[in-house]
């Protein structure tokens, strides 16, 4: 079975910005301008992906179908990311350190709920509930173990110093909210990988989506670890991971395209 054509220009652009980021790390230019360009790309490219995903959702009958809802939700997630990144970039022009929690977090906080609901809908596509029922005890045990392991790993990485909670404030509450969101998304990704047998012409698009969510999770963790050390500046490693994540999710939004597999057009493939 032939897979679908890749959006080549988008992929070439993404590779270009990856090389640009590597060059930034290698040459470490002193002018802030070079780092700000990457911050703008980190806003603009997901915005483009958001628009494309929203357009593609209509071809799957929008919210009336599970795939249509997945595309709407990843479109909203990418849009929330773009707005948060835009707010972060603008504020960072005027102040040395962007307040946390602040305006960008009002947008960033919505990303995980949107991605979680997208993953719930992917569970419908893969018929996962029935697959779990086939060996109920074994699969539920496997599922529980995976979720518990992911939860403990995330919490340990982020909150291994319990003195952190001694002065509970809004920043800690937002940290917990982000962590909870990350755990839910990565657990749902794991469930999809473990129990669904996704394939066919949409396979590459769906695996891009799952890989994007995994990179988003790694980016969230690395940001939380590096930010207190002052190493989460513009175009740093977390930004690069977020760039890969949003690029993969955007790519999925473009590749999960009903028009490309429609038989009326499909005969031309």
């Amino acid at each position: 079975m032939k897979s679908l054509p890749l959006p080549k220009i988008y992929i070439i652009l993404t590779i270009f910005w990856i090389i640009y980021w590597i060059a930034l790390q290698f040459f470490s230019p002193e002018s802030r301008y070079f780092y700000d360009i990457f911050a703008i790309v980190l806003f603009a490219q997901p915005l483009y992906g958001s628009v494309k995903a929203a357009i593609n959702s209509k071809k799957w009958n929008g919210r009336k179908s599970a795939v249509g809802r997945i595309l709407i939700l990843i479109s909203l997630g990418l849009f929330a990311w773009s707005l948060g990144q835009l707010a972060y970039t603008i504020i960072s022009f005027f102040v040395e350190e962007v307040p946390y929690p602040g305006l960008p977090d009002i947008f960033f906080i919505f990303i995980d709920p949107f991605y979680s609901f997208a993953m719930f809908n992917l569970i419908l596509v893969g018929g996962i509930v029935s697959n779990i029922k086939k060996s109920l005890v074994l699969n539920v045990s496997l599922l529980t173990t995976t979720i518990v392991a992911l939860t403990f790993t995330t919490l340990y990485l982020l909150f291994n110093d319990l003195s952190y909670f001694e002065t509970f404030d809004l920043a800690i509450a937002v940290d917990l909210l982000y962590s909870f969101g990350s755990i839910v998304v990565i657990s749902l990704v794991a469930i999809n990988i473990m129990f669904s047998r996704l394939g066919g012409k949409m396979k590459v698009g769906l695996y891009c989506l799952l890989a994007g969510f995994v990179f988003q999770y790694i980016g969230d963790i690395s940001y939380s670890l590096l930010e207190p050390l002052g190493q989460a500046y513009s175009a740093s490693m977390p930004d690069f991971l977020f760039y890969i994540a949003t690029s993969l999710v955007s790519l999925a939004g473009m590749m999960i395209n009903a028009e490309l597999i429609s038989t009326t057009r499909g005969e031309r493939e």
């Binding site: 996704l198 394939g199 012409k201 949409m202 597999i261």
Partner: peptide, 10 residues
């Protein structure tokens, strides 16, 4: 053809 074995499972 669309979602592979996942579509068959459904």
């Amino acid at each position: 053809e669309i979602f592979g074995q996942a579509s068959v499972d459904v």
